[in-house]
């Protein structure tokens, strides 16, 4: 079945990128119980930062990655400080509407400042195709797997093995007790936005490397899919977001591989809906108990 093996490589590529974006949704939801609908557009801005680092400053791959992650992390922190923090105690629907507004703002700001025409991302990785048994793998795909895997490992370590990570988990658990331990909740939340946005920027660069035509609306569809991946995996659970992303990538690719591609999104998302009917909290999610 060389055909299926090749489709699995395609699914891994999609899943790796979805995972980096889904992590941002899940991290922010974890600490704030806020669905950050601007996240898909933060991913888009990350791709444009990468584009400017690569095309205008002429940086190679690794410096582009670091510069774009840093710039986008700063943007995430600014968005949190200016748009979300003033609304932290407002009704939740206000925060969600603000998130949608921030997303539209980013889209149209990019549209107005860099223009509507699609841009070509310069190739940062020498393109070569390897025939590994039955499958063809490109250098770009290898870089995507490696970078995504590495970032996910670092994040997992950071959250589970460091004191700051422990503080993040504590904020996620109960925001009212954390200040009693001498931890600044504001600082932890800002850090979470920085990490989530930085990962989205990494996703943006990898996406722009794999699909080198970028434009201001590119984050909408990808953002939605990554959000679905985060929910399927169990929103708020970090490993769940990674798992959900690969499940979604696999579902999309396999449906298109064996059924008419017109039905791809319809069947792939239908399956995910079914899964949520039986496990509303997602694959790895825990049921939340409402305190009365």
């Amino acid at each position: 079945m060389p055909f299926v093996a090749q489709q699995m490589v395609n699914a891994l590529q999609l899943g790796s990128i979805y995972a980096l974006i889904a992590l941002g949704y899940t991290l922010v939801y974890g600490v704030l119980r806020l669905i950050n609908f601007a996240h898909g557009d933060i991913f888009m801005v990350g791709a444009f930062f990468s584009f400017f680092a690569a095309a205008v400053l002429g940086l190679p791959f690794l410096p582009t990655l670091l510069a774009s992650m840093a710039a986008t992390a700063l943007l995430g922190v600014m968005i949190e400080r200016l748009a979300y923090r003033p609304l932290r105690h407002a009704p939740r629907v206000s925060a969600v509407i603000t998130a949608l507004g921030v997303g539209l703002f980013l889209e149209h700001f990019t549209l107005a400042s860099v223009g509507a025409q699609p841009r070509l991302m310069p190739p940062l990785i020498a393109s070569a195709v390897y025939q590994a048994g039955p499958v063809r793998v490109t250098t770009v795909q290898l870089v995507i797997f490696l970078v995504a895997l590495l970032l996910m490992l670092i994040l997992d370590r950071f959250v589970n093995r460091t004191l700051t990570g422990m503080a993040m988990r504590a904020v996620s658990w109960d925001k009212s007790v954390v200040p009693l331990m001498g931890i600044s909740v504001d600082r932890i939340i800002a850090l979470t936005f920085a990490i989530g946005s930085g990962l989205a920027a990494a996703g943006g660069l990898l996406y722009a490397t794999a699909y080198p035509v970028i434009e201001p609306y590119m984050g909408v569809l990808v953002g939605w899919k990554a959000f679905v991946a985060a929910v399927v995996g169990g929103i708020g659970v970090i490993r769940g977001a990674m798992l959900g992303a690969f499940v979604l990538g696999g579902a999309e690719v396999l449906v298109a591989a064996f059924l008419p591609s017109t039905y791809r999104d319809f069947i792939a998302f239908g399956l995910l809906l079914l899964l949520l009917i039986f496990r509303p909290q997602g694959i790895l999610g825990r049921r939340e108990v409402q305190k009365v």
Partner: peptide, 11 residues
């Protein structure tokens, strides 16, 4: 809006 066509193109 799709950017990944690998599944269809593999087929």
């Amino acid at each position: 809006g799709d950017r990944d066509f690998s599944s269809q193109l593999t087929r």
